[in-house]
Design a protein around this nucleic acid. Structure first.
Lengths: 222, 222
DNA sequence: ATGGAATGTGAGCGATAGCTTATATTCTTG
DNA sequence: CAAGAATATAAGCTATCGCTCACATTCCAT
């Protein structure tokens, strides 16, 4: 009897039953991404692992892309919670404590589901709906900028936007790369050393006296 | 049924004619990657764009993966040349000049073929032969470590390996991210400001007095 | 209890992927 | 030139992909 626009999947699941199906599909997608990689994550395989028929899959997700996007969104929300909580805690803290909070949060965030994080970062093509994977960073940048603005008198930086960009990019890259390529520096007592080093890096930058500007010409335009 | 490559393709081309074919294939692969993205880069399409038959393609490249790997290798070699030249120039320079050299080299390197660089970084799955995309960073890390060791007395860092890791990761992430998400900061006079800022970041870190260690406990293991 | 809405099913379609192979053409070398 | 080695061609094979559709089952309000 269904001769309506079949191309459009149902937007929301009203019954509890369907919510279970949706969850199973997202979970299965995540599992396959982690265990077998992006290109092994075919829709048929996802449906099979979820214990659901392909037909049902396409009732709730209009495309494979939408499925992966859902996984990304779920993961992103988890990360975001950690980051926001830390930044909220840091608002009232002095500079160094706030920075340590930020770095700790970045490390914790990368610990949520490292394998999934890697797959999302390394294998998922950033095209179409999947291109805004970096939403978390963007949000962190804005929050950090606010913090820097509130503590303007403690730091020697004028371009706060640029500073926020530099710091968020740096801290994220360092923790990310540590998780990926140097897991040793995040285990045991080495973790504290790592945090110390990164804190020094950030703190040294922020506390640079404002007059430390040199009209050098090294960059070559192209 | 996943069949292994049974037919070994010819390793080296003896005639000049075949070298042209190989070059055309690599070039076509790069062009398609840039203009249409990774998953549009089918072997049939690559062969067509190269003006070569698929049969010839498989004479020289055992798989699509091998083709992409060749593109990566070519790009990597170009980057590597820029980085190594800069680091060679920097060996004899004092700290700040050397750092500016390094940062300038990173920016220049990212300017070689930014579109291709982005595609390789964002869309190419890091599996199989394609997982050592980061060979350049590894090499840069070693070279920088040597430099730091030679200038040990000018800096306040003890763990030179960790420092090299941090610096290379940071500079690469910043230039990479700037190219990708903030191309504005690399144009015109802003470029100089960007170099200044990153230089401050790096310099402030390296020149931190050695006693600036705090036995803090912020990191949370999981 | 019953009818319609919500949900679930899976065979199978069309497209395209990576790749093989039989054959044709060009080069090199005696 | 002859002949074999090197190189080039493209039709087409097999596999798999994302996805549809006709239908079955379950839920819920009446």
């Amino acid at each position: 009897m269904a001769r309506k626009p079949q191309t459009r999947p149902r937007k929301s699941a009203s019954q509890q039953r369907s919510q279970i199906t949706v969850d199973a599909l997202i979970e299965a997608t995540a599992r396959i991404l982690v265990r077998e990689g992006y290109d092994k994550a075919s829709t048929n395989r996802i449906a099979a692992v979820a214990g659901v028929s392909i037909g049902s899959l396409y009732q709730y997700f209009p495309s494979k892309e939408a499925l992966v996007a859902a996984v990304i969104e779920r993961h992103t929300r988890q990360l975001s919670d950690v980051i926001q909580a830390a930044l909220a805690r840091a608002v009232a803290s002095p500079l160094e404590a706030a920075i340590r909070e930020l770095i700790g949060a970045a490390i914790d965030a990368h610990g949520i589901d490292p394998k999934l994080h890697c797959v999302l970062a390394e294998q998922v093509p950033r095209v179409g709906r999947l291109e805004n994977i970096n939403a978390v960073e963007k949000q962190a940048r804005l929050l950090l900028r606010d913090y820097l603005e509130a503590h303007r008198d403690e730091i020697g930086i004028t371009d706060l936007d640029l500073a926020a960009f530099i710091l968020v990019t740096t801290v994220e890259a360092l923790t990310h790369s540590a998780v990926l390529h140097r897991p040793d520096v995040l285990t045991g007592e080495k973790a504290a050393e790592f945090v110390d080093e990164v804190t020094q890096l950030v703190l040294g930058y922020l506390q640079t006296p404002p007059r430390a500007r040199k009209p050098n010409k090294v960059s070559r335009a192209r």
